[in-house]
Amino acid sequence: MIKARVTVTLKNGVLDPQGKAIEHALDGLGFAGVGSVRQGKVFDIEIDSADRARTEADLKAMCDRLLANTVIENYTVAID
């Protein structure tokens, strides 16, 4: 069993109104010095396989085809 974590984040230059709202809320709570907040998604995926290289390729394909919208998002794949 391979455990992987996929992180999807917005590309630079793509406006993130939700991140902005969180930024303002943190400011409102009194946390000083919060420069910027960008919101993203995390997927924890378990894959029944022993082939790490193959699994990594599969995970990247999953990101390209579904988990991320590569028009606006970047992704990283980390395998335990």
Binding site: V14, L15, P17, Q18, A21, N69, V71, I72
Partner: peptide, 17 residues
């Protein structure tokens, strides 16, 4: 249609949320 790649670009959360 955008998600299917049949049209370019993306539709994001409204700017005022």
């Amino acid at each position: 249609l955008v998600e299917a790649g049949m049209l370019p670009g993306a539709l994001m959360r409204n700017d005022h949320l």
